[in-house]
Design a protein around this nucleic acid. Structure first.
Lengths: 215, 215
DNA sequence: CCGTTTTGGAAAGTTAGACTATCCATGCTG
DNA sequence: CAGCATGGATAGTCTAACTTTCCAAAACGG
């Protein structure tokens, strides 16, 4: 198919697709003449994936580019590529002073130890992100959360097993990595929205009970 | 304290604080003379909260403003205010065509029914966001997820109970709402990072097993 | 075959968000 | 009382993600 149709199917304006091509987010089409190209279903999928990661996952175009590059590279060790993809979609925040960060890191390592999670490399972006989040939570003055870290860890642990189920049994390595990325990014959002709905349920029950006490 | 000190304690440049004041995100300081003001610890906290919601939660300044307005308004029905706060921090995406969205909505209502979640108002932003996410997942070509919706729902349900624990027993209503917001936004990030660590554990186990098969 | 669309590609322009800088008249401080 | 800080207003900056505009070479329709 050509530009117009690609744009139509992907639901993205032609100019934007040209822009993605320029930035290397979408591979060039197959040449039919020196200045003419043809695109396939892969291009449609690729563009939809970009939009999903940006619109739902909230990733920046640059981050999407890095993640896709990792997905495309997909010939190295699967576990490492997955880590690479995770790095791309994880943005840490440098929060807290030296002391706070040291405490947070210790807390994280401790937690990881209890759950048998890998936590060797202190510079792992996921670890760094966690450290930042813990510092922020403390700074913002809500210590309560930290007492429940283990409870949340258990939930995360169960989620991960569920996530891996989605990958096990898929043949192509490249496909596995793509699924992992989508699952991680969109899954985050899916989970948090489900959590919100469930919170509505829980808060309604709690506050309704309170209101009865009040009146 | 005065500007310089506030800026110091909050870790944000003076010019930025002035900007937040202009935008009404931070309440004006207490006047000591027609063109001089004094700030308190509340201001420091408020600014840290703004930064946390933006940097960790990824909310836009405008969204933060709406959420804080809801927090400040906090004199109406707690449950409704909580919903308001949730609206602020939930950004839906208009994805999918008429048909897909109808299917997604039915799926969501079905799921909510099974879990006793409130789902009366189709226009609830959380519902809309969920519909968008389901459409996107389908469009991006990963149907697998949908079979596991219930499993994820169970996890979300348990998380919500845990979340509510953090609120129960807190005295001030305004404080409750603030906690709920922080818990929801920062908690989302905390959970997703824990999930990533756990995924590393799970994927390592899975791919290590595969590698043995390969070699 | 020929006039009108389309296309690929490059370059410049646009828009929104989140600051940042500059002024200035007043106020506080050593 | 000299000089730096402050509140307040206005204008400027910077980045990300597009859009627009051009152009010459296909492509298509009659």
């Amino acid at each position: 198919m050509r530009m117009a149709e690609l744009s139509e199917k992907a639901g993205v304006p032609v100019a934007t697709i040209k822009y993605y091509l320029r930035e290397g987010l979408v591979p060039p089409g197959e040449r039919t003449s020196p200045n003419q190209a043809r695109y396939g279903d892969g291009h449609v999928q690729r563009i939809k994936l970009i939009r999903a990661l940006m619109d739902v996952g909230g990733l920046s175009l640059t981050t999407v580019g890095e993640v896709l590059a990792a997905v495309d590279a997909g010939k190295a060790s699967p576990h490492r590529i997955l880590g690479l993809a995770q790095e791309g979609i994880t943005t840490a925040r440098q929060a807290g002073d030296e002391e706070s960060r040291a405490w947070a890191l210790a807390t994280v390592k401790d937690l990881a130890g209890r759950w048998d999670w890998p936590c060797k490399d202190d510079d792992d972006p996921v670890i760094q992100a966690l450290v930042g989040i813990l510092c922020t939570i403390k700074e913002v003055g809500h210590g309560w959360y930290l007492e429940k870290l283990d409870a949340y860890a258990e939930i995360a642990d169960r989620t991960a097993d569920l996530d891996l189920d989605g990958i096990a049994g898929v043949a192509s390595l490249e496909r596995i990595i793509e699924i992992a990325v989508v699952e991680t990014v969109l899954g985050d959002k899916l989970l948090s929205m489900l959590r919100r709905l469930a919170q509505q349920r829980a808060s309604k029950a709690y506050f309704d009970a309170l209101a009865v006490d009040d009146e």
